[in-house]
């Protein structure tokens, strides 16, 4: 809708700036709006207050209220869509391929279309060596021996995992966290999330699905 509305009204929007949350969006008041929207969806009340004040300072209070209402609407709609499994028709997805790539959203769990799923079954191992064996089942001619730096490299691709991203579904994750220890488990999860939506290497498209 963002791309459509801006195209129809001859307004140039930089979707990469929207995805990155940085300045240079290209709309009037766009940068202040983007900072306000980011803060609305965040947990930092002080940051939200500052973004709100900046938006009011640049526009006026009714403008900020309208923006706050739109943000609230999409807090509503995201729960509606993801709770009920709402998806788009295939032809609409195909038409939006460029925007999906630019916004780097193909890998989000709620895409619900087509990413291959690799399963780690937490009931099949009790320690890091067992996890290494379980994960190595997904590698083509390679074996991971439990080194975390190597694990990080593997998630960048080239070791037999699907090109273009995949869902890493970890079954019985609570059991794994108990047996591996919270520190190690959380470190592994953090590494995986680096390679997925919102991570520093999000382009690898690794979507973690803990169950």
């Amino acid at each position: 809708m963002l791309s459509w509305s801006s195209t129809e009204t001859d307004e140039r929007i930089d979707l990469t700036a929207v995805a990155d949350g940085c300045d240079g969006v290209g709309l009037e008041h766009g940068d202040a709006l983007l900072r306000f929207a980011s803060a609305c969806a965040g947990d930092d009340d002080a940051q939200l207050a500052a973004a709100r004040a900046a938006l009011v300072g640049e526009t006026d209070e009714p403008f900020m209220i309208d923006a706050a209402a739109v943000a609230a609407n999409f807090e509503m709609m995201t729960r509606l869509a993801d709770g009920t499994g709402a998806s788009m028709p295939r032809d609409r997805l195909d038409r939006s391929a460029t925007e999906i790539a630019t916004m780097r959203i193909a890998g989000v769990p709620s895409h619900r279309v087509g990413l291959p799923v690799l399963v780690i079954d937490g009931d099949r191992f009790d320690d890091l060596a067992g996890l290494a064996d379980e994960w190595s089942r997904h590698l083509d001619g390679h074996r991971w021996r439990g080194n975390l730096d190597a694990f990080n490299d593997i998630l960048r691709g080239g070791f037999g995992t699907p090109e273009g991203g995949f869902v890493l579904r970890w079954l019985s994750a609570d059991r794994s966290r108990r047996l591996l220890g919270a520190t190690l488990f959380d470190t592994i999860v953090e590494i995986i999330r680096t390679h997925g939506p919102g991570g520093d290497e999000a382009e690898d498209g690794v979507v973690l699905d803990l169950r």
């Binding site: 307004e11 949350g21 929207a37 980011s38 923006a67 995201t78 993801d82 989000v108």
Partner: peptide, 21 residues
Amino acid sequence: LTRAQMELVAARVALLRECFY
């Protein structure tokens, strides 16, 4: 808010919520 400004807010919130739709 113009329509594009509304959609900017909508897109950013949905992105941060990781909502593909």
